[in-house]
């Protein structure tokens, strides 16, 4: 229960370029939401893009540059902070004030 909660549809910045994919399977290994699958042992494919939370694990670990995603924190207070200060949304984990993750 709960694993099936879904967030907004069609918003993720995840992009997959199957041309350069070698099917190494690293993206399947790292994605915490099973967004990638390997199709018939050849190449990766997106199984359900809307589950993507933009953590960036897949893109960072794809040695072949087949994935791009605008990774960041999906945290309202961090984003509001970013809007107010004009900087990148940053999670307040390092200051005791704001324990957003």
């Amino acid at each position: 229960m709960g694993a099936s909660v879904k967030y907004l549809a069609n918003v993720t910045s995840l992009k997959f370029f199957s041309d350069t994919c070698t099917g190494c399977g690293r993206c399947v290994e790292v994605c915490p939401h099973a967004v990638f699958i390997i199709v018939s042992g050849k190449k990766a494919a997106l199984s359900d893009k809307d589950r993507c939370m933009e953590c960036g694990a897949c893109a960072r670990n794809c040695a072949f540059g087949a994935i791009a995603v605008n990774a960041g924190v999906g945290c309202a207070s961090a984003i509001i902070n970013g809007m107010v200060t004009g900087g990148e949304p940053s999670c307040g984990c390092s200051d005791a004030q704001n324990a957003c993750c």
């Binding site: 909660v5 907004l8 918003v11 939370m53 924190v73 999906g74 309202a76 509001i80 999670c91």
Partner: peptide, 17 residues
């Protein structure tokens, strides 16, 4: 609470905001 969840991405939260 989006800050505590494990499935809300930045683009989605930005859209809400």
């Amino acid at each position: 609470f989006t800050g505590s969840t494990v499935f809300t991405g930045m683009s989605g939260v930005k859209k809400e905001l």
